[in-house]
């Protein structure tokens, strides 16, 4: 059965809405995936260039690190 009998006279609108939903969902998934890959790559580059995060270092004897939103809040004595 062609899609028109299956979906009735307004088949084009039904197909169009499913197409839009699929497009937007695929767009979101792609955006999240590509963004993840890019961030990991940039992090690796920075790591390779020797830029360390303070928490990844042995705790320096100097003053406590300034408040940094990204670094973990309280580095437990792991």
């Amino acid at each position: 059965m062609s899609s028109t009998e299956l979906l009735g006279p307004h088949a084009v609108f039904i197909v169009a809405s499913y197409a839009v939903t699929l497009l937007v969902a695929a767009g979101l998934i792609l955006w999240v995936w590509l963004d993840h890959r890019r961030q990991v790559r940039v992090l690796a580059e920075l790591e390779a260039r020797g830029v360390r995060r303070r928490s990844a270092e042995p705790p320096p004897a100097s003053a406590t690190p300034p408040a940094d939103p990204a670094a973990p809040v309280k580095e437990t004595a792991a």
Partner: peptide, 16 residues
């Protein structure tokens, strides 16, 4: 997944 990206993005910014 988006939150994970955002945390990584902030770490990149901090490192830079």
């Amino acid at each position: 997944a988006a939150m994970r990206n955002e945390i990584l993005r902030r770490r990149v910014r901090t490192l830079r």
